[in-house]
Design a protein around this nucleic acid. Structure first.
Lengths: 342, 342
DNA sequence: CGTACTCGGGAAAGCGCTTACCGACGTACG
DNA sequence: CGTACGTCGGTAAGCGCTTTCCCGAGTACG
């Protein structure tokens, strides 16, 4: 591996000069030398050692993103937004997948700190776990105290900037739509109960229920994994335990799609017999049949905003900023009034 | 930011000792000292500077992955497999999205080299561009010559290990199925023509056509972006220019889904009036309606294999290994014999 | 009790780069 | 023609860590 010293030697200059030319330092350098150095770089296929540079310069450049799983469309969309902004700022993004293991989240914060990340962005639901939340928060604070920036997406318990989707309000939209259509026997296909996203969305749903003089009993809610197969199994449980169900509210689109596929396999018509509403409005939502009625969250935009916050110059007022993002109901074909009403 | 020296000072030992304790070096250290150092680490919330470590140790640890776009399910799946293996080996993965810009691919190779990546994995189709391929290859060789490992997925023109999906054979499977069912008027919804994946798959399709005494004219093939909207627009073009079409072969599932949605919007029954076959078997394929007949590629597994190859101990025989992976037809509901045949 | 080891710990030399700081030269000026 | 600058390069001191080498103090042995 060619080093700067090699280049300098080859060009017959000092490492200092070579460095200045290669990095375009403000210090003026004669054209003759410049050309010689550049030629040497080319011949030696020299690429500066990023670690050495980082060490010598001592200023952070990369930013870290911690998500549950990039291959989940929810995070994929967020990541897309994040990356776009990061790239505009010339930042390298390090993506860390926790695969929903809170401990990994902790580990990755350390790793990112070790790598001198300029900012850490935590995307995805928080956990209902006092102990964990506290530990994470402590780690994040330490990181911040050494000049690191922090932004979180979809959680509020933490220090640092935050982009917060209207999960509760979105849940309320789902409820308002369903109860408004006349459904009373609603099943909820929920994600893991230890995720705040799940509970926030359900809280909104509950509020809507109350407003319509209804109530959500524990048995109407089935918790499962936040993915397609979790949606399918939760739906199966619901079908078996809640006869007369006319609507299913899935707490994200992946689960809704799982629900759709299970209903289809049981020969149940959607929305004829049962309505289904999802959450997030992932791109696929419009491609399933029936096209999924869902709550739209501007995921890519949320990612972009979080990155923007994180990359902001050292806080003007030193106060973490919180951006709320609205949820919006997108009516498609999977929801309708219950059969009896028609 | 606390440094090792701070920790050492606080524990009243030399940096050397602190380092040895923290990294669990083979050198034995008294328990008393060990505890003091560990306590200091805890109090100072010390995290070693990864760049300094990397510089001092001088051995690569991270691995870089260059993909077109992680938020594309095709790459998301591959990435999932890659990550799994990398994590098992305790490697940090740096994911780089080119967003299909070949120049970025070049840039990222440099960046990864600068970051002392132990290996670079290039996923996704290659480009039909002599010049570019040559430049990339040269850069890769330089990287290899300094001890870097290279593995590519889905392209063959390069140096280094390769995991190659049976694109041609898969295309042939599509053709065999469609022509076998009796279709003769087939439209091809293809990805960008400068991608080798596109042309390889079409080549297989052509071979099947010949075997059935058929032929694919240029007008039967429409090239568009490798995504949902590309699929929709290509399908629209096909419908407008190829009356009497009975089947559409999409060159990936995203495009197939776009095709499906366009057909639905035009009120065309699938597979009643037109059959649709996709390629890749992404998870969503089974959730659209009608469920998509497609060619299965074990994407996550391909990623895992590439990572395994890349992480192999310095080539035993120094020869790049090539692993071919088979494609398989998955019959679902979107394909059937043409109407006239029934 | 002296010698030969062993064992735990520290001193210091880098890893590859950046960046004050300094010095040599050339120019402009008094 | 001597002094004062301004220019352009080089020298060297780190950045935070690892690791080799060495040294002092035990221990075991003759």
């Amino acid at each position: 591996m060619a080093t700067l010293a090699d280049v300098a030697r080859r060009a017959g200059v000092s490492p200092a000069t070579a460095s200045r030319i290669i990095n375009g330092s403000p210090k003026p350098v004669t054209d003759a030398l410049r050309e010689r150095v550049l030629a040497a770089v080319e011949e030696l296929q020299y690429v500066p050692n990023a670690h050495a540079q980082q060490l010598a310069r001592n200023h952070r450049s990369a930013v870290g993103v911690i998500v549950h799983d990039v291959s989940d469309p929810y995070f994929a969309e967020i990541t897309r937004g994040l990356q776009r902004v990061a790239t505009e700022h010339g930042r390298l993004v390090i993506i860390c997948n926790t695969y929903r293991d809170p401990d990994k989240e902790l580990e990755y914060v350390e790793l990112l700190r070790a790598n001198q990340a300029a900012a850490i962005i935590l995307a995805g639901s928080g956990y209902h776990d006092e102990q964990f939340t506290h530990t994470l928060d402590a780690k994040l604070r330490v990181y911040q105290s050494t000049g690191g920036h922090v932004a979180v997406i979809g959680r509020h318990e933490h220090t640092g900037h935050a982009v917060i989707p209207a999960n509760e309000a979105g849940g309320h939209l789902v409820g308002a739509e369903l109860y408004g259509l006349g459904h009373t026997r609603i099943g909820v296909v929920a994600g893991p109960r230890h995720l705040t996203t799940t509970t926030d969305r359900i809280a909104g749903l509950r509020r809507a229920a109350r407003e319509h003089g209804q109530k959500l009993t524990p048995r109407q809610i089935v918790y499962a994994d936040f993915d397609r197969s979790g949606g399918a199994s939760a739906t199966a449980t619901l079908l078996d335990t809640q006869p007369g169900l006319t609507a299913i509210a899935a707490m994200n689109d992946s689960m809704a799609i799982g629900a759709l596929s299970l209903l289809r396999s049981r020969g149940i018509d959607v929305p004829g017999q049962i309505s289904v509403i999802g959450f997030d409005d992932m791109p696929i939502a419009r491609d399933v049949t029936p096209a999924l009625t869902t709550i739209r969250l501007p995921l890519a935009d949320m990612g972009a905003r979080a990155m923007t916050l994180a990359l902001q110059p050292p806080e003007p007022l030193n106060t973490p900023q919180i951006e709320h993002v609205a949820a919006e109901l997108v009516r498609r074909e999977s929801s309708a009034a219950p059969a009896g009403d028609r």
